[in-house]
Design a protein around this nucleic acid. Sequence first.
DNA 1: AGGGCTTTATAAACCCCCTTTCCTAACCCC
DNA 2: GGGGTTAGGAAAGGGGGTTTATAAAGCCCT
Lengths: 414, 414
Amino acid sequence: MKRTSRDIRTANRYEVLRQIIAASPTSRQELAAATGLSLATVATLVGELLDLRMITEVGFEDSAGGRPRGLVAVNASGGALIGVDIAETYVHVELFDLALNVLARAEEDVHPGESLPEQLVGHVAAAVGSVVTQAGIEGARVLGVGVSVPGQVDRATGVAEYAPNWDWHDVPLLDLLSEHIAYPLYLDNPLRAVAVAELWFGAARGRGDAVVVTLGTGVGAGLVLGGGLHRGISNSAGEWGHNTIVLDGRLCHCGNHGCVETYVGAPGIMLNLRELSPGSPLLHPEDQTATIAALARGMREHDPVAVKVVRDTARYLGAGIADLVNLFNPEVVVLSSWVAAALGEPLVTEVREAVARHALPRPMAATEIVLSPIPTDPACLGAATFALEGALQSVGQRNAKRTTPARSRTAPPS
Amino acid sequence: MKRTSRDIRTANRYEVLRQIIAASPTSRQELAAATGLSLATVATLVGELLDLRMITEVGFEDSAGGRPRGLVAVNASGGALIGVDIAETYVHVELFDLALNVLARAEEDVHPGESLPEQLVGHVAAAVGSVVTQAGIEGARVLGVGVSVPGQVDRATGVAEYAPNWDWHDVPLLDLLSEHIAYPLYLDNPLRAVAVAELWFGAARGRGDAVVVTLGTGVGAGLVLGGGLHRGISNSAGEWGHNTIVLDGRLCHCGNHGCVETYVGAPGIMLNLRELSPGSPLLHPEDQTATIAALARGMREHDPVAVKVVRDTARYLGAGIADLVNLFNPEVVVLSSWVAAALGEPLVTEVREAVARHALPRPMAATEIVLSPIPTDPACLGAATFALEGALQSVGQRNAKRTTPARSRTAPPS
DNA sequence: AGGGCTTTATAAACCCCCTTTCCTAACCCC
DNA sequence: GGGGTTAGGAAAGGGGGTTTATAAAGCCCT
């Protein structure tokens, strides 16, 4: 609510680091041009990041006759970030270097019936241990662990307020995890993780207003407003999956009818397929991933059933996204998460047409609809990004007195 | 996009003035407590507003044994603001003092067929002239004129990009108006005018995130995010009226089917009534205001038809608002504009129940749904508020050098 | 009535953040 | 090895906010 000049600094710090990660190596000049900040401010922020060992100087670039530009790049080995994506059937953990390359992966299956928080925590702890070992990273260099868990989450207290999958109510997840994991922990839900991933590294980067539509088993719409994630009063903004798209439509597990999720979430798409062609060989009951992959393959091979199912799905999606375009008038709508990645550009093309049919022409003309360029699990990446944000947040805090002497890179006192 | 520390100042200036208008007279102490700013900052801002003659010192308040608190109040006669609400069938103009009391009103009927910009401009100019004369205000004291016109608007250039009522395309409305009106002009659309009115003087005041649902002939949802109005990339955010609420539902004049507006806008409500009871005496064909008033009266008298129509309307509205609650997780949803005012608290009660049925329980629990407390035409008030914001905006600009000597209220140089 | 206490208001000093300006370092070319 | 040119850093300056000190204005009590 209350904005202070320090928030500006934090936002600028984020922006500079984002830019460096995106275009590494780069020069201070380029950063200033890209961020709109003055050279001096960029130099200060770059200095901070150098002190933190998050970036390093990596040589020089010729300039047309003058002093060469110093280049900085992400110091990939300057730290590691861990992203944890807890879902209904699996726990997916990835360890990233600071350039956000994946150094190690681990996946644990969550069997039906394993719904106790302790069981999930066990899986997470095991997988986190595994990636750290695999990567051969000293623990001290892990800057933090971001955890994405479905449902409503209080990120300040680290409590999973409500997770429908396992009927959790107010589970102090972060406290439980901290008994097994010594690194700083950050909690949020996949919806906002994906949105943050797109904001930092994906199609929403550098855009003022964006809507990140997550298409996975669940469905959501992360709201990027003014270059930051909109969280709402109780950190549950973006819960688009349970908006009504068809009055008195399909029954949703939330108890309502006609939710977006029941038509364009992975189970909803399977239902679209089953309704169209009940015995289709594309359908792999009980296996969302296989079915979506089969649809994607079918679409490439111009299988009429697959094409029709995707088109129908895109129609529902288009109607829903048109509402978002009217409401927010965003610069870009990003389709992200695994279903969007699997169905790819053909889906986006259909969606564009469907949105254009429903949305008002003027706002529509100002909005791009694009596929996420993120190649890996965006929820993991986003969770790791929470950890990165966390590590950057505490930079400016009251250490000016201490950094000033420590920053004497010029000459040690000897 | 780019935020600077001056934006903080502007926001604080707004906040302090809002607070003074809301609780006039008040003391610097109260203002500091209410805004969360320090006494010193409040004193500076109050000083600025005193210099602008927007507020005055109005005596003292006893304190328990110490120096009495100086009281400041809006200097109602320190200036006048004019709000213009252009609608399909009328032009409504109100002149406000700085306490936002209405000093004069004028209304011009717009006859069907009068669709040329010049004709509308004529009406506006006449009405503005009329209110200035009625109020007996010297022209110099008019701080500005806010104009609300339906459709898409470019507020920077003052162009009405698209107005469906009259089939306007890129009409340079502000240029046309400035030939007749010498005061500073501000243009936007009714949706955002109503939202700003609620933000400054209504139920959204002091709330971080709010959704202002405008229920009139048209329908919209102004988005107040982080204490400011969200405009989107092309200033058309909040166009909720043409979101699809019933797939393949009623035909809307926008060409789509099942738009929110066709069910909960005034014509939509009339249609709800006609479908339920085609020959109802409540129905005044061709007269929206009379029909809505009749429904309100019928509801008070427990007329079963009226009750049923309002309940049906509330159901549609509730389903739509539930989507907004899920998406934004706002602190408050405000029902505003004339239809909401006419149907009043009974409508809100029904809406609350309907929203609760559709929205997710957690976000819903954090959100209040309330009726606007604004007694007059909120579009006029909001338009005038644009003028007020405009007058405040230019304060900080480069006049520090000049105000400092001018601020020597202590002793004139003589 | 005058000293002491309390409370308010203003002034001064300080911190933070960003920008502008100036200067030096580093490189190219002649 | 000097210009010319460009990069980077240090210092100054302007805007904003807060904290601390001081002056002002009242009450209360002796």
